[in-house]
Amino acid sequence: MQDIQAYIESGILELYALGDLSSAERAEVEAQAARHPAVRQELTQVQAALGLYAEAHAITPPAGMRERVLGHVLANLNSPVAETPATPASRPATSSLRADVDELVQSRHAETTTSTPVLPLNAPEPVAPARSSGWAIAASVALLLSLVGNALLYNNWQQANGELVALQNDNARIAAATQANYRQQLGAMQEQNAILRNDEFRAVALAGTKAAPAAKARVLYNLATKAVYVDVKNLPALPADKQYQLWALDNGKPVDAGTLAVGTAAGDSLQHMKDIASAQAFAMTVEPAGGSVNPTLSTMTVMGAI
């Protein structure tokens, strides 16, 4: 039972629902769901949650689209493609959506290449006159095997080719993404540098409270523009459903200065917080993700006066 709970919490069901698994992994998830009602229930919930997310983003299609799409679709229901959805029974019960659809496309694709050599198996006439000549039969069988072999090799080659293209695409995209990322990081660092060198900013050291003596951070407060930046040196890590929230204390009253992104809390970079009109001190508390209206004082982690 604990194993099942661990399995559910591993996040694999989310990956399944997002279509982020290999076919072997998908088969494994489906087997688990068939075996354990708890897994099935969780998976149904995950799918329903994503379905709700999709549905919430519904867009009314443009005028005239209904007629065009339905016209095209209804005209294509009986097209030759209709021959292919055959062999649902021969398909392994474990295959999932993506595989099913891909298979369908491939079978349509491969039809031209594979169907010709395979046909004689179902249509025994040409081979039928079995004139007790073992040689003729043996030759036919050899020819058939060779044809089937060729078809398989052709299929494999095509598949490998497709995978190569996909890999090249991935490669190009990752390279471009990395570059964009570096550019972004460089821009952020230049901005931070400008803030750190700006004399208008006043650094306010925030020291750890009893709850977290090693915690340390500082606030950069621009008294002229009222801009507030936070710079973390060290803060205890939080669970995913919690966030640090910065508060300005103005005449003893806490004013929300915004929540800290995970990267900021880890000390990766400065974060621009909400503008604060006036403050004598700053403090940070631990709040539920998204932040709170009022600080939970018992979770105060760092504090410092201007």
Binding site: Q47, H72, V73, L77, P85, V101, L104
Partner: peptide
């Protein structure tokens, strides 16, 4: 959308209600 609807019609035999909802 057009392509998807044609595909859904032709591939419908592979839809397995025990694995998930039609919408999914």
């Amino acid at each position: 959308l057009q392509e998807a609807m044609v595909k859904i019609w032709h591939a419908f035999a592979s839809y397995d209600a025990s694995k998930g909802r039609l919408f999914t």
